[in-house]
């Protein structure tokens, strides 16, 4: 399982990085972009997951219950067998980010 700093420094996250954003905001936004792409490309409906998480980023405060609900929703989609391996892998990446953010928040290292 990757840590928040590792995820934040990944090349795919770099384009979302900015000086005033906290690491968890940048990493979450990259995950939301992944979810947005899955919906945009017609694979799976994700907006109901993205919206509340986006609000956390805007508010600048991580809300554990929102992240937990998002994790549960993503797992439910993964359990549906008809989405294929590509979607499963992408959703796993998102889950990894959500867990890293949760862990860093619990340890006080945003």
């Amino acid at each position: 399982m990757k840590t928040l700093p590792e995820l934040k420094n990944a090349p795919s996250v770099k384009r979302f990085d900015s000086v005033l954003a906290e690491d968890w905001q940048t990493v979450l936004l990259k995950s939301l972009d992944t979810l947005n792409r899955l919906e945009k490309d017609g694979y799976v409906f994700t907006r109901h997951i993205s919206r509340p998480v986006a609000k956390c980023i805007v508010d600048g405060a991580l809300n554990n219950s929102i992240i937990n609900a998002a994790i549960n929703d993503i797992r439910e989609i993964q359990e549906e067998k008809d989405h294929g391996q590509f979607v499963f892998n992408k959703l796993s990446e998102v889950l990894e980010s959500f867990f890293a953010v949760k862990t860093a928040n619990r340890e006080g290292g945003k």
Binding site: S18, Q25, A54, K55, V58
Partner: peptide, 15 residues
């Protein structure tokens, strides 16, 4: 323009 919170601004656009 690089002095900004890009994540916050982009997340706001999602709404």
């Amino acid at each position: 323009i690089k002095y900004q919170n890009m994540a916050l601004k982009l997340a706001a656009l999602m709404g």
